[in-house]
């Protein structure tokens, strides 16, 4: 996945969040769909709702969320999976 690509939410006004514990319910008013997300995926989505971000800055966020020493290449597959999942749910897109 090209690291210079940026990701953004499809519509920053369309997403509505409600959390209980470590889980988030996200309502997308564009599609009418409701999603149950884990904390990490939801935090990445919240970051993208604030502003488009590139892969590296999202990897840094993921590192802090997971409180892990793993960096860069080691986290890449996990981040790719999360972004692909959010993309498949039509919540985010590449800029």
């Amino acid at each position: 996945m090209a690291s210079n690509l940026k990701w953004r939410v499809r519509s920053d006004r369309a997403l509505h969040f409600h959390s209980w514990g470590d889980e988030f319910i996200v309502y997308n008013s564009l599609s009418g769909d409701t999603h149950l997300l884990g904390s990490v995926a939801a935090q990445i989505l919240l970051r993208l709702q604030q502003a488009p971000s590139d892969f590296m800055s999202l990897a840094e966020l993921l590192t802090s969320l997971l409180q892990t020493e793993m960096m860069g290449e080691q986290l890449e597959p996990q981040l790719v999976n999360i972004l692909e999942d959010l993309n498949a749910l039509a919540l985010i897109e590449r800029t």
Partner: peptide, 20 residues
């Protein structure tokens, strides 16, 4: 967990989607 309950109640709703 309340998040799981949310999804299951929504599945049992007649007009959750309609109400947006």
């Amino acid at each position: 967990p309340q998040s799981r309950a949310f999804m299951r109640v929504a599945d049992n709703s007649f007009n959750y989607s309609l109400l947006g």
